[in-house]
Simulated assay, not measured.
Amino acid sequence: MMLWNGMSQVANIAQLAGVYAYGVITMIVEAAKTVRRNRKTCQLLARLVKMIGDLLQQLESTQLMQHTETRNPVEQLEETLRHTYMLIRSCQDGSYLYSCFMSGKQADQLHPVQNEIAFYLQLIPLVGFVDTTRT
């Protein structure tokens, strides 16, 4: 009985990983609507993560999150999404002087995140294929 409860908890946590990613995606899309600095880049990031969120919703009903090799990329994506959210939030606030000095640095931080998100967007179909062939 103890083993079954443990496996059930692992499955529940794994399912939450995809749901959590989608929640962060929603927060990113909303935050990008109100940025003041690096607006174009933030809105591009929001569009990319929205595409990923749409794909994750389709994969949510599969057994995707119960296997390490397909769960790991989604978990890594979640870490990238949390970082993206914090960067986009940093583009929302600040005085004019702060904006002048920091917008370049923020842009330098946003571009690598944009590349990383694009990588995960390309990886998701492969993850879905692996999941489909397993079942």
Results as ranks from 00 to 15, higher is better:
residue 1 M to S: 03
residue 3 L to P: 00
residue 5 N to H: 08
residue 6 G to V: 07
residue 7 M to R: 14
residue 7 M to Q: 12
residue 8 S to T: 05
residue 9 Q to V: 06
residue 10 V to M: 15
residue 11 A to W: 09
residue 11 A to P: 06
residue 11 A to G: 05
residue 12 N to L: 14
residue 15 Q to Y: 10
residue 15 Q to K: 15
residue 16 L to K: 15
residue 16 L to N: 15
residue 17 A to K: 13
residue 18 G to Q: 07
residue 19 V to A: 14
residue 21 A to N: 02
residue 21 A to V: 02
residue 23 G to F: 07
residue 24 V to R: 02
residue 25 I to G: 01
residue 28 I to V: 11
residue 29 V to L: 10
residue 31 A to L: 04
residue 32 A to Q: 00
residue 34 T to L: 12
residue 34 T to M: 08
residue 35 V to N: 00
residue 35 V to L: 04
residue 36 R to K: 15
residue 37 R to N: 04
residue 38 N to I: 00
residue 38 N to P: 00
residue 39 R to N: 03
residue 39 R to S: 05
residue 39 R to V: 11
residue 40 K to W: 07
residue 40 K to L: 10
residue 40 K to G: 03
residue 43 Q to E: 07
residue 44 L to C: 03
residue 47 R to H: 09
residue 49 V to P: 00
residue 50 K to P: 00
residue 52 I to S: 01
residue 53 G to L: 07
residue 55 L to M: 08
residue 56 L to R: 02
residue 56 L to K: 03
residue 56 L to W: 04
residue 56 L to H: 02
residue 56 L to M: 09
residue 59 L to M: 11
residue 60 E to I: 08
residue 61 S to H: 11
residue 62 T to D: 04
residue 62 T to V: 08
residue 62 T to A: 08
residue 63 Q to D: 09
residue 63 Q to M: 13
residue 63 Q to S: 12
residue 64 L to R: 12
residue 64 L to I: 11
residue 65 M to F: 14
residue 66 Q to I: 12
residue 69 E to M: 12
residue 70 T to D: 06
residue 70 T to P: 05
residue 70 T to S: 15
residue 70 T to L: 14
residue 72 N to C: 11
residue 72 N to F: 14
residue 75 E to Q: 14
residue 76 Q to V: 05
residue 76 Q to P: 06
residue 77 L to P: 02
residue 77 L to F: 13
residue 78 E to G: 15
residue 79 E to D: 05
residue 80 T to R: 15
residue 80 T to Q: 10
residue 81 L to T: 02
residue 82 R to A: 11
residue 82 R to S: 05
residue 82 R to D: 04
residue 83 H to I: 11
residue 83 H to W: 09
residue 84 T to G: 00
residue 85 Y to I: 01
residue 86 M to H: 13
residue 86 M to P: 01
residue 87 L to Y: 06
residue 88 I to W: 02
residue 90 S to T: 06
residue 91 C to R: 06
residue 92 Q to A: 04
residue 93 D to S: 13
residue 94 G to M: 10
residue 95 S to P: 03
residue 95 S to Y: 11
residue 96 Y to S: 08
residue 96 Y to A: 07
residue 96 Y to M: 10
residue 99 S to Q: 08
residue 99 S to F: 09
residue 100 C to F: 15
residue 100 C to A: 12
residue 101 F to R: 15
residue 102 M to S: 12
residue 104 G to C: 13
residue 105 K to A: 12
residue 106 Q to T: 05
residue 106 Q to W: 10
residue 107 A to F: 13
residue 112 P to F: 14
residue 112 P to Q: 07
residue 112 P to C: 09
residue 113 V to N: 01
residue 113 V to K: 04
residue 113 V to G: 02
residue 114 Q to E: 05
residue 116 E to V: 10
residue 116 E to W: 06
residue 116 E to Y: 07
residue 116 E to N: 09
residue 118 A to L: 10
residue 118 A to Q: 08
residue 119 F to L: 12
residue 120 Y to C: 01
residue 122 Q to N: 06
residue 123 L to Q: 06
residue 124 I to P: 00
residue 124 I to C: 02
residue 125 P to G: 09
residue 127 V to T: 06
residue 128 G to R: 14
residue 129 F to R: 13
residue 131 D to K: 10
residue 131 D to Y: 07
residue 132 T to D: 05
residue 133 T to W: 11
residue 133 T to G: 05
residue 134 R to N: 04
residue 135 T to W: 13
residue 135 T to V: 09
